[in-house]
């Protein structure tokens, strides 16, 4: 090994050790540490000062279709809160970065789940139960790539795709004219039907509510934010939710997480998930 890179490796190791020393002990609960201002950047230094909870993941094996083969073993969770939001940083190993959805192809994803209302007895961790909803914020790798600037075009998926003709791209139609917009809408049925999963995305996350398996529905509005990066065979994703009565400084509640690996054809009910984990928001001084 050349001396220069040897020195470099040594430096990285030293820094890593130093990082370790600064990092608080792993915690049994998820503890949201207070900061002045939250950063969505998973590499922000502030995360190092939050204690880490290592959450074991279980395959979703309660409702069909189930996941039989476990994939992601655990997810490392850190949490921070400022005056307005609480944020979770999820990190998990993934041997392949999957950020495209196509026939037989699924993107990597993760989610944070909280009970919709504060209660000593939380609802069923498996997506809540009738009358006792849960709130979910869902992050997806393909949405991340779009918001990071990848073009939303079939040729991103299949570089050699040949497209004969899109009716809305006819040269006779002035761009962005009402006639063109109407044609675009006609050939994008999900978007026209108001499906928020479809169409151009401004954010890599979506807020959802559920009252049991199969009932997942969009929240009235997505108020959460997120950002994910893939480095060294691992995803690091930050999901930030606004604070609310059930979730404020000093409160104790529960939180659950889920991870999907696209390469393992995981989507929807086929996922790795945790049960409820105690969540503590540090009181503000």
């Amino acid at each position: 090994m050349p001396a220069k890179s040897c020195l470099f490796t040594g430096l990285v190791a030293l820094l890593a050790l130093a990082g370790c020393r600064r990092s608080p002990q792993p915690s049994l609960d998820v503890i949201a540490k207070n900061v002045e201002k939250l950063s969505l950047d998973p590499e922000d230094r502030a995360w190092r000062h939050a204690s880490e909870h290592v959450a074991a993941l279980l395959p979703q094996d309660v409702v069909d279709p189930r996941l039989l083969k476990p994939s992601t073993a655990f997810v490392r969770v850190r949490a921070l809160a400022d005056r307005n939001q609480v944020a979770f940083r999820l990190e998990w190993q993934d041997s392949s970065r999957d950020d495209l959805a196509a026939p037989g192809r699924f993107p990597d994803a993760c989610a944070v789940q909280l009970p919709a209302t504060a209660s000593p007895e939380p609802p069923n961790p498996q997506m809540g139960e009738p009358g006792r909803p849960v709130q979910i914020t869902f992050w997806r790798a393909d949405w991340q790539s779009w918001t990071d600037g990848r073009k939303d075009d079939i040729r991103e998926l299949y570089p050699n795709a040949a497209v004969d003709h899109y009716p809305f791209a006819a040269p006779s139609l002035p761009k962005a004219s009402p006639a063109q917009k109407e044609l675009l809408r006609l050939y994008a049925p999900a978007e026209a039907a108001g499906n928020r999963r479809s169409g151009p995305r401004a954010s890599p996350v979506e807020d959802l509510v559920a009252e049991g398996p199969g009932t997942l529905a969009p929240a009235p509005k997505t108020v959460s934010h997120g950002k994910g990066i893939f480095t060294n065979g691992a995803w690091q994703v930050v999901i930030a939710r606004p604070l609310e009565p059930a979730l404020n400084p000093g409160s104790r509640t529960v939180v659950a997480f889920a991870v999907w690996q696209g390469s393992q054809l995981e989507a929807g009910a086929r996922k790795m998930r945790t049960g409820w984990i105690p969540l503590r928001l540090e009181p503000r001084r």
């Binding site: 079939i154 994008a188 999900a190 499906n195 999963r197 989507a267």
Partner: peptide
């Protein structure tokens, strides 16, 4: 629809199609 493609897998005639652009 949220694009889980369970229907695509299940239809023996393969007459449901996943739209990679709309995601459903």
């Amino acid at each position: 629809c949220r694009g889980y493609q369970e229907c695509v897998k299940a239809c023996p005639y393969k007459k449901v199609f996943f739209n990679p652009m709309s995601g459903v």
